[in-house]
Design a protein around this nucleic acid. Structure first.
Lengths: 336, 336
DNA sequence: CTCATTTACGTAAACGATTAAGAAAAACTT
DNA sequence: AAGTTTTTCTTAATCGTTTACGTAAATGAG
């Protein structure tokens, strides 16, 4: 590996001069700097990240927290797409992306310790148990943090606009003429709470009362639990005309139940999903859903994190709402 | 951050002694070492990765190459699952995982340069264009490399046993009584070539001749192209009784076509997928497919890479075959 | 008791970069 | 022309570790 020393020898200057020339410091002669840069390129020089990190305490490395309780974190298209976007934006800003975990080898360390160990310049918390003390510790540390879909006081967070998304979805369903709308929601998280609240509120705005039996609890990304909930809904004396699923993938579970019972979508029953994953638009009929803008969410998360790393004084903690987009599809029947 | 210096002061010994005690060197008194370790733990000491890397030229960091031409790399469940497994095994071995990319900030660097810049101890090449000169350069460098599903001379590679997988699949289909089997395969890669060859060979072994029109080309993970191929197959005068799809997800495209034409699976036509993704077993009927053992593939890749990092002299390049598992499902009809 | 060996620790030089402070040379003042 | 400022470069310290080597004390051999 060619180091600054090699360049300094070749150029007949000191190492300090090389460093300053390469970093664009002003106190180096124009032509000297140019010459040094040329030689450096010729020799294929790249800075030694470790040395630079040691001295500057900056690594140009951001950590991502993707904790997959039940090994499913990255399997969700929502999260893998998010990661992709974070990665892309980080690269654009000159940062690398490293996974943060709670145990490295035999020694178990907290997320914070891991971050310090690797000297991450910042962390994106994308998928984690936000109540985990180890996560809270990290959030409250001095390390710049951006969270996704969860708000911590005084920290920047990027939020998929679930309130608006559900509102759009419900509005669309109502506009198609439905009055009996059921909601199957995921496990209790702040996202879920928002979706449920928005569901009730929007229904109310349209003067629709929702019987308690129309709201069922299931799990995200779990077709089995959605299938179960679907059965319960279909067993009701007064069936809903439209069922909203926690997410597109879970819908696949409900779909099977509907199939078995000989119910056609959307002729006999209408359905909606959430997320807008690739699969949802492959299905026949295309699923009515809300596409969460993972590209923007990831991009904003990385960009804001980098901003607060590079300009800590001016870093303002804020909540950034990213709107999703209603995809009408063909799974909701128009009722005259 | 507490450093060795802090510990050395508290313990009244030199920094060198602390270093040696913490690293388990033999030339430190038993009780001294124990005391130092105790204090270190009390003070919450963790080594500074950058300093250690600078001195030892080892980072305990492995790079992963997941190049997503057309931004789909991580979207495939095969790859995201692979990444998950690599990550898990790396963590077990005390390594962190960093993405390697070709451009970091404004300066475009080759994969190799990126690896050197970050001083990755090794790299897993999981998803990339193996003909890309930049990839080849990396493979031929001094950095330990393990490739997945592609063999480079003198390098360790982990291979999903596609030959066996397709053989098992075809055998199963034949055993169910099928003689007219069509294959829709993915774009030209070494994996695809193996699958096609294994398809032909197994058919031959069973004395089945495959008309050229029964073999169609499509793209992996692309339902549209598989749908197209399905149409072509169904337009044939002598239709196949079973269609093999490039992968489970692509099958979804074919499924729509079959649906439209009123063909029931498996009563009217049999189908198989490949991969064994979550979705495949949610479908009704459950898809006959081959589950690729991504857990083992990822684990072996990381484990072998770490082995060759930590014991370079004894590192033997080898090809490790990981068998998949036939999942019978219910999408292939038994023909008497 | 002396000399050799072992044990346990300290000294100091690296690793490759950054940066404050200093110094020589050039340019500008008046 | 002498002093002042500016420009350009060097010196040297530093970041936190690791490690070859040195050395003093303890132990053993004869």
């Amino acid at each position: 590996m060619v180091s600054m020393k090699d360049i300094s020898i070749k150029c007949g200057v000191s190492v300090a001069t090389v460093s300053k020339a390469l970093n664009g410091q002003s106190d180096i002669g124009k032509q000297t700097a140019q010459h040094i840069r040329k030689i450096a390129k010729e020799m294929g020089y790249f800075p030694n990240a470790a040395a630079r990190a040691l001295k500057t305490n900056r690594t140009n490395n951001i950590g991502v927290l993707f904790v997959d309780n039940m090994q499913s974190g990255l399997m969700h298209e929502y999260f893998s797409s998010l990661l992709n976007s974070i990665k892309a934006e980080a690269e654009r800003g000159g940062y690398d992306v490293t996974f943060i975990s709670s145990n490295i080898g035999q020694s178990r360390m907290s997320y914070l310790e891991h971050c310090r160990y690797r000297a991450c310049d910042g962390v994106v918390i994308a998928c984690a148990d936000f109540n985990d003390p180890s996560v809270v510790e990290l959030v409250q540390s001095e390390i710049p943090v951006v969270t996704i879909d969860h708000v911590f006081n005084d920290k920047t967070s990027i939020l998929s606009n679930n309130v608006r998304g559900v509102k759009d979805l419900v509005s669309y369903i109502v506009e198609q003429g439905h009055k009996k709308i059921a909601l199957i929601h995921g496990e209790d998280t702040s996202v879920t709470q928002k979706r449920i609240a928005s569901f009730y509120r929007t229904c109310q705005e349209f003067g629709i009362t929702v019987p308690d039996q129309y709201v069922k609890s299931a799990l995200y990304h779990d077709p089995a639990s959605s299938a179960e909930a679907t059965k319960e809904l279909l067993a009701l004396a007064d069936r809903p005309t439209c069922i909203m699923y926690p997410d597109d993938f879970s819908f696949m579970g409900g779909r099977n139940v509907l199939d078995e019972m000989g119910l056609k979508i959307p002729e006999d029953i209408s359905v909606t999903g959430y997320d807008g994953i690739f699969l949802s638009q492959i299905l026949q009929p295309a699923l009515t859903t809300v596409r969460q803008d993972t590209i923007s969410i990831g991009r904003e998360a990385a960009a804001r994190l980098i901003e607060s790393i590079e300009n800590p004084k001016a870093a303002v903690a804020e909540q950034v709402m990213i709107d999703g987009q209603l995809i009408p599809g063909y799974s909701v029947k128009r009722i005259p």
